[in-house]
Amino acid sequence: MSAERVVLDARAVQAAVRKLAAEILEAVRAAGAAPGELAVVGVRRGGIHLAERLRAELGRAAGAPPPLGTLDIALYRDDLASRGSAPVVGPTDIRFPIQGRTIVLVDDVLFTGRTIRAALDELVDFGRPRRVWLAVLVDRGGRELPIAADFAGARVEAGGGEDVQVRLVEAGAAADAVIVRPRAT
């Protein structure tokens, strides 16, 4: 446990979410997108609570909160056969037409990019959005696919043998934090 280090504390997590919201609104203005065009989609499970917070922030700044959806990418993974365990599938729930919208895809940690690849595949099954932006709380590098975050709350240096975990109070944590710890073997 001594090897576990906190890279963002509760205050820093909240600041990062606010920063993401401000940057997204700025990008909406710069792109000339209509206010009602924005929608937030969280990637299960890490992105869900973050997407809810971001939606609330965006709603505070823009007047009305944008619609919120969730994606479960368990059955879209490209490594199912080699994972050796049965997938646990949660709800995928997008109840608004994504056609023509600006979608903010939200996840907690961006690492290899494979989750985002799967999420994009699933998202486009629902229709053709005008554009998709990727917002993550933490970008830790280590990409295996040509995918980049449009908005990153923080950049964290972590070794290949380390895990970056986002702990939020909504998921049962005592306080919000982003920690780096040796990967459990």
Binding site: L75, V88, D93, I94, D121
Partner: peptide, 18 residues
Amino acid sequence: LAASMKEVLRRPLKKVPT
């Protein structure tokens, strides 16, 4: 696993590339 799979049947889009 079937309980997990049933989740897909509740989706508006009942297709996964698995």
